[in-house]
Computed example of a mutant assay.
Amino acid sequence: MRQGPRNLITDVAGLRVGNADDAGLRSGVTVLVGDLPMACGVQVMGGAPGTRETDLLAPDRIVQAVDALFLSGGSAFGLDAGTGVMAGLRAQGRGFAVGDARVPIVPGAILFDLLNGGRKDWADSPYPDLGRQALESAGPDFAIGTAGAGYGAMTANWKGGLGSASAVLDSGVTVGALVAVNALGSVTVDDGPWFWAAPWEIEGEFGGLGLPGAFPAGTEPAPGKRQGEATTIAIVATDAAMDKAALTRMATVAHDGMARAIVPSHTPFDGDLVFAVSTGIVTGDTDPFALGHAAACCLARAIARAVYLAEPGSGAAQPAWRSRWT
């Protein structure tokens, strides 16, 4: 397993990602769009999720593919981002055909960033515009760290952010991850520089620091946020042909990567969620065991990269990792 050329989810051919964010709002939106509709599954393991259109992704539902996915800040207000994404896709002639009508299929998930010091006194929700802007900016290269849905994200001790990573398997199949990290837990061991995801790091992509010689034993962490204030939301993707049932399993396994990179994770206070998509470009004998493992590893790496690359900023509620350790 090696990094893809960009070390981004867009190393999966046929995918593009766009960000839109607002420094005053301290929030934003990230959109993943396929050149063609994508098969998609989802698994929610946190206790406080916020979602749109996820019921459609069950294997027994009639809709078999999605046009785009969005991740957004703004708590429940951020679900409005899907309206902007739908409007942009409709203008492009995209969507599920019902007679002469087309309905873009755009599931999404949100994180809570309403108490991060940004301006939240809007009269009209900014999220539809941010959603459309993110869609219209989508391309193979995009910013991570303090960007998009991760712009105003926080963790137990450091600024959160938007992360991405990719892997090319020996079979030639590509797997990638995209994540907005706004966790109750910590991505590092205590307040030190070491990332919990270090065993899965490739080519020093988040500092090459490894792990400390000893871990704090018997720690019982106290929650630093209240119910509904934390969530890590992610997308894993592959070019291997997979149906909705197989992708649901892939999303479930990818949650292992979240648990490797955030301690604790999947708490009652988080809305932890993973989407999984397939572009279906690579057909034939694809190994679900290898794909699930690669998805979990990519997600762990993407989570660490989100915090590693988050930028310091005036007025931020938390310090950036890099402001102390670089």
Rank of each mutant, 00 (worst) to 15 (best):
F275K: 11
D11Q: 02
A310W: 07
V29M: 08
F289I: 14
T286E: 13
R249P: 00
N19E: 01
R322T: 08
D191Q: 12
L184Q: 14
R6M: 03
A222Q: 14
V173N: 01
G73L: 06
I202E: 11
G280E: 10
P264Y: 05
G152V: 05
L56K: 08
A276I: 08
G292W: 13
A241S: 09
W321F: 13
F215L: 15
D141A: 14
A153Y: 01
A156K: 13
A214V: 15
A300F: 12
P223G: 08
L15C: 13
Y308I: 01
A143F: 03
D60R: 14
M242W: 04
P126I: 01
L178I: 13
A39Q: 08
L71G: 13
L273Y: 05
W196R: 07
A240V: 01
M86G: 03
V17E: 05
A149G: 11
P212K: 03
P5H: 07
G145C: 08
P223C: 07
L169V: 04
A310N: 00
M250L: 15
T252L: 14
Q92K: 15
Q133R: 15
G176K: 08
L8I: 02
V236D: 04
S27N: 09
A91E: 15
G204F: 02
R226M: 12
A134Y: 04
A147E: 02
M154Q: 15
A167R: 15
G34F: 02
C298I: 10
A259G: 15
R102V: 13
A276N: 04
G28Q: 04
A246P: 01
R119S: 03
R260N: 04
S125F: 09
E203P: 00
V63S: 03
F96R: 04
Q227V: 14
H255W: 04
G224W: 13
G108I: 09
C40M: 08
A109T: 07
G50N: 01
R132E: 15
V282C: 07
R301Y: 01
D11K: 05
A81T: 02
Q92P: 01
D239A: 06
G47W: 09
M242D: 09
L184E: 14
D243K: 11
T252E: 11
S323M: 07
A276L: 10
P264Q: 09
Q64M: 06
F289D: 13
L247D: 10
G315Y: 05
L162I: 02
D285R: 15
E203Q: 14
K120V: 14
